[in-house]
Design a protein around this nucleic acid. Structure first.
Lengths: 189, 189
DNA sequence: GCGGCTAGTAAACGCGCGTATACTCATCTG
DNA sequence: CAGATGAGTATACGCGCGTTTACTAGCCGC
């Protein structure tokens, strides 16, 4: 038997790269860009620190790669327009209840820091959330309405982060639905 | 005339302390706890770095002193309950338009970082915003409703920070009013 | 079987951070 | 005017960060 099974791992650039990316996704999602160090990521991925630099160029590059891999909100926004506020409400409620894996919003809302990352974060926020939502909206003020709904989503996440998760009641989901309806409505009352 | 006016400053412990505190308030409000260094604060206050330590014990202590000096939201929440959503909307709209001085929300929303500061930030968010608002609300779910409105306020600030300020139209204020009404209403629809 | 490409490693570099220390000198008291 | 007090200063310490460099060793084609 060649050495022990514990420290034997086949050399595999792709697999290692993937481990690093996965660890980064989790940690960035949990703690945001600034608080996560490349050493933490490397340790979580059981890889060497230098490999982060080699495979992703820099910490910011790795962050960008993480964002690139995040799913779009197409499925959320895609259905019928009538049910959109309710779907957003249910998504937000789910986010309220438990720390999510590491969706784009959480990562972004946690990474207000380095200006280097602000650019990529803002660009991603626009292309992945704001723009798709905006394109779903008819009538005037589509941008402002999409912006308000996005802001509400972010705010709910921020609150959960500050005050801890909270199990939403059915009344909460109803209220959230009303809030998103108010956000997206063309002319308020 | 004794010496030049440019580099002559009377030795005044209180005044210097105040300059540091003021600079910290501005910088923390603009950039958050993590991104602001004590050297930046000292430079902005035209004071020596060591004085920060001497007068406030530590960076976290200085942050706490800043939060202590921030105004409460009593005036916003204090008026008639009917007009509360509109007042919140107008406040949020004003926040959308231009970077505010350094209100508590901005400081808090920017300081998600160090756990040491998280505690004081959360406590402050609760005592200065969430609790006062919650106490203004009658009926069930007061906590959830206050939480949602607070989250919306934070979310709007977060959006402005990400995407830049944007001049809100009257329609935006109307929409915001509707959103806050939806947040605060006892039973949605 | 062996040489070369390259995945993976170890260690260090330079930097900026928060903080602590030792000092200078303006101001006030007698 | 002389001396004490303490506001203000200059500087260094230790640390952890992102990054880089020089090296080791596993795999693959010949």
């Amino acid at each position: 038997m060649n050495a022990q099974a514990t420290d034997a791992r086949p050399r595999d650039r792709e697999a290692t790269r993937e481990r690093i990316l996965c660890a980064a996704r989790t940690l960035f999602g949990e703690q945001g860009y600034e608080r996560v160090t490349v050493r933490m990521i490397a340790a979580a991925a059981d890889a060497n620190v230098a490999l982060v630099g080699r495979y992703f160029g820099s910490k910011a590059g790795l962050f960008g790669a993480v964002l690139d891999g995040e799913p779009t909100f197409g499925d959320l926004f895609g259905g019928d327009f009538e049910g959109l506020p309710r779907r957003l409400a249910e998504y937000a409620a789910a986010r309220m209840e438990q720390p999510p894996e590491s969706p784009i919003l959480r990562t972004l809302e946690r990474s207000a820091g380095h200006p280097e990352v602000q650019a990529v974060a803002r660009e991603r926020l626009m292309t992945a959330v704001l723009k798709p939502l905006e394109e779903r909206l008819d009538g005037p003020d589509a941008h402002a309405r999409a912006r308000m709904a996005t802001g509400t989503l972010i705010g709910i996440g921020a609150m959960r982060r500050r005050l801890g998760p909270e199990k939403p009641t059915p009344a909460d989901v109803d209220r959230l639905t009303a809030v998103f309806e108010a956000c997206l409505k063309v002319s308020p009352a």
